[in-house]
């Protein structure tokens, strides 16, 4: 962790894989990129085995491009589809046992604050609906009750995608899945309200239809967690396999859900709001200066 760890030692450039050299020369380390520059810099996440057209993979792609300080970030994941891409990124990744992510992240964040008291080290959990709201429910909730200062992102595909289609607490009522043929009998859990009630200081719900908006939410959640407490993003990230969405229609589906039950929602405490406004004002000024010079 840290820029020194990323740099290639002099004389070794010619032995390093091309992708790594590109990462150091044309990547995100030590400089902030704008997500609108995607396709014009070397991204942190590499090729991975997630399915064609998977919008969880898309969300993860935008997440990495949005990181304010990738060289000072640790990502935690667990069993489930997301880890297939999270483990292919040039950001340290810890694989928590299924359900344990928020307990591991709590300890990690506390240790980092003791080891690096004067530095911001960002800890982000990215896990599925099953990992966070079913099997890891207790640990997710208790990390929020305790006010642990890290970000939790739930990539909600409304199913246990990685194990072939069992229903989760986040599946919509009535939905039939391959391994839940009778249809779901109870409502989708209101994760966002739980997060607010449990003490998160910044909470957002988003469908991945606008990369700029995803990036803004990711950055806000990370900045707020540095100073004030737990933050939570609930992202709709469809599973085209288990929900039989033709891949060409995946973005159309995300747009449709945005108009229905995934309308953009954002909530934060007053002190977080003030703090974020200040950061974003400074960012704008810095960008203006860059354009001038």
């Amino acid at each position: 962790m840290g820029l020194e760890y990323v740099r290639i030692s002099p004389g070794f450039e010619k032995y390093m894989p091309r992708d790594y050299v590109d990462l150091v020369k044309f990547g995100q380390f030590g400089r902030e990129v704008d997500v609108m520059q995607l396709g014009q810099f070397k991204e942190l996440v590499e090729e991975h085995p997630m399915c064609a057209g998977c919008y969880m993979a898309y969300f993860i792609r935008i997440f990495y491009a949005a990181l304010p300080k990738p060289e000072d970030t640790i990502v935690l994941g667990t069993a489930g589809c997301a880890r297939l891409a999270l483990s292919q990124a040039a950001v340290p990744f810890i694989y928590g046992n299924y359900g344990d992510t928020n307990a591991v992240a709590s300890g990690l964040k506390r240790a980092l604050s003791i080891r690096f008291p004067d530095k911001d080290k960002d800890v982000v959990v990215i896990a599925g609906d099953g990992g966070l709201m079913d099997i890891g429910f207790g640990m997710t909730m208790h990390s929020w009750f305790r006010g642990e200062k890290f970000t939790t992102i739930m990539v909600d595909n409304e199913v246990y995608g990685n194990t072939g289609g069992q229903e989760s607490g986040m599946s919509p009522k009535g939905v039939q899945l391959k391994m839940a043929p009778l249809g779901k009998k109870f409502d989708k859990i209101n994760a966002v309200q739980l997060a607010i009630d449990a003490g998160c200081v910044y909470v957002a719900k988003i469908s991945p239809t606008n990369p700029k908006k995803i990036a803004k939410v990711v950055r806000r959640a990370i900045f707020a967690a540095r100073k004030f407490g737990p933050t939570f993003i609930h992202a709709y990230t469809s599973c085209n396999i288990e929900y039989s969405i033709p891949t060409r229609e995946v973005l159309a589906d995300a747009r449709k859900r945005e108009k229905e039950d995934f309308k953009f929602f954002e909530w934060m405490t007053d002190e977080v709001k003030e703090y974020l406004e200040e950061i974003e004002r400074k960012e704008k000024e810095r960008k203006k200066q860059e354009v001038k010079s």
């Binding site: 995607l38 090729e47 997630m50 057209g53 993979a57 898309y58 792609r61 990495y64 990369p211 995946v250």
Partner: peptide
């Protein structure tokens, strides 16, 4: 470019 799920 902004909506492809795959990196680079």
């Amino acid at each position: 470019v902004l909506f492809c799920p795959e990196p680079n």
